[in-house]
């Protein structure tokens, strides 16, 4: 194991140790750690929950909502980002509409989602979609506009048409920017799916975490938070890894 991994794991272990000491000793120094569960209590609760079918139902429900909402957002966000940046007419038609909706936080659309969709499930997926859609759209739009014109000129003087430019320049050339948007979009969609589940869900990690809070099961709340953190980390890492593989041509700093 490299020295860097020892430092990383050591840092995590030190954080857990500090938490255990502060909660087990009931420290109250302005912040009140005496009401929070200890690491050991949370670990015990996690083991208990991991033995129930309900835990996995919640996990798959949240992951499924993220998968559908995020994939829809990626497809539509990348497509519209390219269209808005490349077509003056469609840019003029779509941009004002998108710019008016963009500042509205996705979570503020929960009441609309409840009214608009026949089921809660569809509403939650919609919130997840909206959350990821705008970062992806904006990053793609910027990436298309930042493309050096020389690459397009090169393809055009080879006899390439608009389709060739799209396939050979725009799509590969914007990948670094697009993946930046996908990374941000994935993080925001987790925040919103959990919030939406807390408000209107029947299953899911967010719903279960809120349920634990209402029945004063604080170790359960922390288990929910840790689960959300881990799921968010794994899915963001997957996007990051896919991005690195797709943009191997970029110059990178050597890492030990």
């Amino acid at each position: 194991m490299s020295a860097r991994w020892v430092v990383r794991i050591g840092s995590l272990a030190a954080g857990l140790l500090l938490w255990q000491v502060l909660t087990a000793t009931g420290t109250t120094a302005w912040l009140r750690f005496d009401r929070l569960p200890t690491v050991v209590e949370v670990a015990q609760r996690l083991v208990e929950q991991a033995g129930t079918a309900e835990f996995y139902t919640d996990l798959t429900a949240s992951l499924g909502r993220i998968a559908v909402g995020f994939l829809l957002a990626a497809t539509l966000g990348i497509t519209l980002g390219i269209v808005v940046a490349r077509s003056k007419v469609l840019g003029d038609v779509l941009q004002p509409l998108l710019e008016v909706v963009r500042p509205i936080p996705a979570i503020a659309l929960v009441p609309i989602a409840i009214l608009l969709f026949p089921t809660d499930e569809q509403g939650i997926v919609f919130i997840t979609f909206v959350a990821a859609f705008f970062p992806i759209l904006v990053s793609t739009r910027h990436a298309v506009r930042a493309l050096p014109t020389m690459w397009e000129d090169a393809v055009r003087t080879m006899g390439g048409d608009r389709r060739h430019v799209l396939l050979n320049v725009v799509l590969p050339g914007t990948l670094p920017g697009v993946f930046g948007g996908l990374s941000v979009g994935m993080g925001v969609s987790w925040i919103c799916v959990i919030s939406a589940e807390m408000i209107s869900g029947r299953y899911g990690v967010g719903y279960r975490t809120w349920q634990a809070y209402t029945i004063v099961d604080y170790p359960g709340v922390i288990v929910g938070m840790v689960t959300i953190g881990l799921l968010g980390w794994v899915t963001s890492a997957a996007v990051e890894l896919a991005g690195r593989r797709a943009t191997r041509w970029l110059p990178r700093e050597a890492t030990a």
Binding site: P148, M150, W151, D153, A154, N168, V169, P172, G173, L175, T247, W249, L250
Partner: peptide, 9 residues
């Protein structure tokens, strides 16, 4: 082109 115009990917 002056700046080679190669597609870097």
């Amino acid at each position: 082109f002056q700046d080679d115009g190669l597609l870097p990917w």
